[in-house]
């Protein structure tokens, strides 16, 4: 199976605090991987290290056979290949919905306005936001913002989509609309790496579940294995705590 990103011995420290310790991890093409774990276990940091929003302290990130942590590697070109969806949506406040999906394509990928708008409209339709193309971010609800953010990331036509707790900042009734969109994307064969607290969702859509604890990958495997027969004591404990809520 072809690996989209391959992470080897990745570590990250903030000062003396080691957040990630010697992580080995990869995402295969077409695979949906969910990362679960309690807060502070390093899940988000791992995701942010993958697209270099945090600079890893050590290790390698191999993309298309090249280590992108080399000094001379073009990190901007690499980042266009990873779509990122943030917990806080982070839509560009000065652009409307269509503008959010178009600006990256035009300025970074140098697509023409017409092409960019065509691509943007296609993905806005996928997330069901094509009715709102001229709305500004402040006029949208949280769930709508997150769906636009997903369309924005998809418009760059990335190799893999990274979701950093996409539903954690949403009101409960809006979580559903975002998860539905993500589920559709998963079924369409998109490669996805999702940090989430939605255990039901992870169980449902993931091909592989990774459980992180204290900066290391404690256990990984199929959803059935992790949720039904976890081998590690700490996985069992974590699941007991979260699922009983």
């Amino acid at each position: 199976m072809e690996k989209v990103v391959d992470i080897q011995h990745l570590s990250k420290s903030f000062g003396n605090h080691e957040v990630l310790k010697d992580i080995d991890f990869s995402v295969n093409k077409g695979e949906v991987v969910c990362i679960i774990g309690s807060s502070g276990s390093g899940k988000s940091t791992l995701l942010r290290c993958i697209n270099l929003l945090e600079k890893p302290s050590g290790g390698q990130i191999i993309y298309k056979g090249e280590n992108i942590l080399d000094d001379q590697h073009d990190i901007y070109a690499y980042r266009t290949k990873l779509g990122m969806v943030f917990q806080q949506f982070n839509l560009f406040n000065n652009h409307d919905v269509l503008g959010n999906c178009v600006v990256g394509q035009m300025k970074v990928l140098k697509r023409s306005k017409a092409d960019a708008e065509k691509v943007a409209m296609r993905y806005l339709k996928v997330v069901g936001m094509d009715q709102y193309i001229h709305a500004k971010p402040k006029q949208l609800s949280g769930g709508q913002k997150q769906r636009v953010a997903i369309a924005r990331a998809l418009s760059m036509e990335p190799d893999v989509m990274l979701f950093d707790e996409p539903t954690s900042a949403l009101d409960p009734e809006m979580v559903g609309e975002v998860l539905t969109v993500m589920k559709e994307l998963a079924e369409s064969g998109l490669t996805m790496l999702i940090v989430t607290h939605e255990m039901g969702f992870a169980k449902d859509v993931a091909d592989r579940v990774v459980f992180m604890d204290k900066g290391v990958i404690a256990e990984e495997g199929s959803p059935e294995q992790i949720f039904n027969n976890p081998t590690q004591e700490r996985t069992r404990e974590f699941l007991k705590r979260t699922l009983s809520m």
Binding site: R79, F86, F92
Partner: peptide, 8 residues
């Protein structure tokens, strides 16, 4: 971060 994440 959002701008950097799309490669700007």
């Amino acid at each position: 971060e959002a701008a950097h994440a799309i490669g700007m």
